[in-house]
Amino acid sequence: MTENLLFSPTALYFGTALLLALGALVFFSRAALASGDRRSILILGTLPAMFMALTYVMMGLELLTVTVTGTGGREQSVVRFVAYTGVLAIVVYVLRELVYLSQKQFVLLLIPFVALPWFALASWVTTGAVESLMSGGAFLSYLAGAYLLYGPLSKVASRAGGERRLLYVKVTHLAVLCWGALILTSALSEQAAGMLDFFVGQLVASYIDLLFMLVFAALVYNNRDLFTGKREQVEKTTD
């Protein structure tokens, strides 16, 4: 397929990977200088950016590609969805550590966030009713995750204290906003509504990824002191 693009897809992927890698490197270097109990959570905060940087490199190398339906046979790498799975799992884990979610609450929240990218991928490679079903599944997963975050788990977070609850709310807002933007972008993409072409869609997706990963890392870094307390102490003080 021949297109007149401002940047080639490879350059777009590598450029995004470069920015993500630089951001991850900055936060990782700062995480490495932190004290013991904070270092692990700070490094955990930089892992999404690292995963996505690696993902974009692999996408630039056109590894693990599938043919996306409705795009005239465009090949898309499935590595992005693998990375999204890891990224969302890390985000959910950080929320668990932040407001001390129970194991059950953690698994319950992890399911929609893990299912969401794979429903999106499935919608890319299917057609017709299945595609609609997969798209609906992705949207429902998004709604389910948002419900859990703003509903029952928010009450759990309110017991964790002001600063922790504030960070929980910010991460929740960030995740819901960025995933909403990604779903919206996906809905407007050339393989769905067809309002966005490949270049604009990919640029917007890259921007969303950059924003999500780096803001998440920044939020974790700026609130690193919140991750030093013990679960028992916090539960005792919030009873």
Partner: peptide, 20 residues
Amino acid sequence: IAALAGLMVLLLLNLGLVGI
């Protein structure tokens, strides 16, 4: 159209981020 749609998405995203 694609550019406008993309800009709208980015604008909403950024405004949401500021709000957060």
